[in-house]
Design a protein around this nucleic acid. Sequence first.
DNA 1: CGCCGAGTTGAACTGAATCAAGAAACGTGG
DNA 2: CCACGTTTCTTGATTCAGTTCAACTCGGCG
Lengths: 192, 192
Amino acid sequence: MLENGIHRIVTNYCPLSPESLADFRQYVEVLNCQKGEQLVKEGQHSDKLLFIVKGCVKAYYVKDGKTITDWFAFENDFICAITSFFLFVPSPHYIELIEDSTLLVITRDDMMTLCNKHHDFERLGRISTTKTMLQLQQRVVSLQFESAQQRYLNLIAVHPSIELRVPLGDIASFLGITQETLSRIRAAKVRI
Amino acid sequence: MLENGIHRIVTNYCPLSPESLADFRQYVEVLNCQKGEQLVKEGQHSDKLLFIVKGCVKAYYVKDGKTITDWFAFENDFICAITSFFLFVPSPHYIELIEDSTLLVITRDDMMTLCNKHHDFERLGRISTTKTMLQLQQRVVSLQFESAQQRYLNLIAVHPSIELRVPLGDIASFLGITQETLSRIRAAKVRI
DNA sequence: CGCCGAGTTGAACTGAATCAAGAAACGTGG
DNA sequence: CCACGTTTCTTGATTCAGTTCAACTCGGCG
């Protein structure tokens, strides 16, 4: 699974030299976890970067007693407790498994070591960050002035399988709407 | 102004070796423009990355005949037509000067040349992208489940001077609300 | 069988949009 | 320096998309 995961990173993001790859293997670990497990809890410092080999994961936070889903990660995605990982603060986010999953894990310190040592690893960092930045940009456009229905249609256009894998309530809060509204949108009882 | 700008990049983002700096100077240009000028128009391919030495700039797009402000950049910020620059497609965005400004300009190709040649320049790319990613992440949280009033208060907490520099309508659409609503919020005629 | 979480439906409510006037501020030329 | 048009901002009345709260359905599963 380690080699499988590393191969997917290299093909999906950016090639690495044999030396970088050898070094990478030293630092990365494989983690198998079950649906429902919480890898990060609110208030914890988290310095782990995860890569999803198989399965799916959500990041969410709690506001006024309500659970708000902030991000989903599926196969070949990276995910981390973004504020804690990059800003060294306690995480507002939980990270929780939506399915039984196989993950690769690397710590921030080890990432930094690899980034300092290998130019191509630094590039991998730049490219994966750029990809996330572009996804966030799309999400802002979607939240800023699109209707709930349009946001939903956008989401299933990008992730057609999401409804089969993720509970409705999580999708709703990711879209910035309530579960009831999403249910009505799916039943097409909301005016287009 | 060139040295001033480069110095600010190095201090605000990431140090560069003397060799990288020397190379950087070869590729970067200083641009002085006036309020109202459009550096990028909808439909154009844009391969320019801008750094604001002095002044401010907005990126906006037009949807259903309405102007929607997507991003502001002030002193020491980078800005580009994000989709066009990174995905090589025609830009949905306009980029327009809000004040008379001094900018540094570098093309995507020259950026890539510098990234390939210098490890520390690649790091500069990673770090500036990470910074933008974190700002977008905050913006998503803000748009997802905060009230119009709360979003406004967040914004002026981060950019206290924005109201003095940017027209109300631009701020409103950046927040995902109408100008009328923002005007009422400022007059505190909306319930807290 | 009865419980339990996930999803649906209904009715009333509300935050913000829309539409429509005005009032202020701004700049440009006489 | 003032008159003029233009852009920027405010205010009011009405409408509507989406929330809230509450009840209900459905499919598992001990």
